[in-house]
Simulated scan of single mutants.
Amino acid sequence: MLMRRKNKLNKRSVITMSEPKSINSEQYRTIRTNIEFSSIDTEVKSLIITSAGPEEGKSTTAANLAVVFAQQGKKVLLVDADLRKPTVHFTFKLDNGIGLTSLLLKQMPFKEAVLPSGEANLDILTSGPIPPNPAELLSTKTMKDVLAEAGAIYDKVIVDTPPVLAAADTKILGSYTDGSIMVISSGKTDKEKAAKAKEALVSCRSKLIGAVMNGKKQTKHSDCAYYGH
Results as ranks from 00 to 15, higher is better:
Ser102Ala: 10
Asp123Met: 07
Lys220Asn: 15
Ala197Trp: 09
Thr61Ser: 09
Ala148Ile: 06
Gly73Glu: 13
Thr170Pro: 07
Gln72Pro: 00
Ile130Pro: 01
Glu112Phe: 05
Met3Asp: 14
Lys93Phe: 03
Gln218Glu: 15
Asp190Ala: 14
Gly210Thr: 04
Ala166Gln: 09
Val76Gln: 08
Asp95Tyr: 11
Val146Arg: 07
Phe110Glu: 08
Asp190Val: 06
Ile153Ser: 03
Lys171Met: 14
Gln218Arg: 11
Ala197His: 04
Asn64His: 09
Tyr28Leu: 05
Lys106His: 01
Val76Ala: 05
Gly57Ala: 07
Ala148Asn: 13
Ile49Ser: 07
Thr170Val: 13
Gln218Asn: 12
Ala150Lys: 00
Asp190Ser: 13
Glu56Val: 03
Ile124Cys: 06
Gly151Ser: 15
Pro109His: 10
Gln72Lys: 14
Lys74Asn: 10
Asn34Phe: 03
Val79Lys: 02
Met182Gly: 01
Lys74Gly: 00
Ala120Asn: 10
Leu2Trp: 06
Ala148Pro: 00
Leu83Pro: 12
Ser186Trp: 15
Ala167Gln: 07
Glu149Gly: 09
Ile35Met: 00
Pro163Ile: 06
Ala135Trp: 08
Asp145Met: 10
Lys198Phe: 08
Asp190Pro: 04
Glu36Ala: 13
Leu65Pro: 09
Glu192Ala: 14
Ser186Val: 04
Pro132Asp: 09
Lys191Tyr: 00
Pro131Ser: 10
Ser139Glu: 10
Pro86Lys: 11
Phe110Ala: 03
Leu47Val: 10
His229Cys: 09
Val67Gln: 04
Leu137His: 04
Val183Ile: 08
Ile31Asp: 01
Ala166Gly: 15
Glu149Leu: 12
Phe37Ser: 01
Pro86Gln: 11
Glu19Phe: 08
Asn7Met: 12
Thr177His: 00
Thr91Ala: 05
Arg29Phe: 09
Thr140Pro: 01
Ala148Asp: 14
Tyr176Gly: 00
Ser180Trp: 02
Asp178Trp: 07
Tyr28Phe: 15
Asn96Thr: 13
Ala211Met: 15
Lys8Thr: 15
Lys191Gly: 03
Ser203Arg: 14
His229Gly: 13
Leu115Gln: 15
Asn96Pro: 09
Ser13Ala: 12
Val67His: 07
Asn64Cys: 11
Val212Cys: 07
Glu19Lys: 12
Pro109Gln: 13
Gln72Ile: 01
Leu125Met: 07
Leu208Gly: 02
Asn24Pro: 04
Ala62Thr: 13
Lys93Asn: 15
Gly215Glu: 15
Gly187Pro: 04
Gln107Thr: 08
Leu165Glu: 10
Ser59Pro: 02
Lys198Asn: 04
Ala63Thr: 06
Arg32Thr: 01
Leu138Ala: 09
Gln107Ser: 05
Asn24Thr: 15
Pro86Asp: 07
Gln71Tyr: 02
Ala195Gln: 14
Pro109Leu: 10
Lys45Thr: 02
Asn133Cys: 08
Ala194Glu: 10
Lys188Gln: 14
Asp169Pro: 08
Thr87Glu: 10
Val114Glu: 01
Arg84Val: 12
Lys217Pro: 08
Tyr226Ala: 11
Ser22Cys: 09
Gly53Phe: 01
Ser22Ala: 09
Thr91Asn: 00
Leu122Ala: 01
Leu47Asn: 05
Tyr154Cys: 03
Pro109Val: 14
Ala52Thr: 03
Val79Ala: 05
Gln218Val: 12
Ala200Ser: 14
Ser25Cys: 02
Arg84Ala: 10
Tyr28Pro: 02
Ile15Met: 11
Leu201Glu: 08
Phe37Cys: 04
Ser203Trp: 00
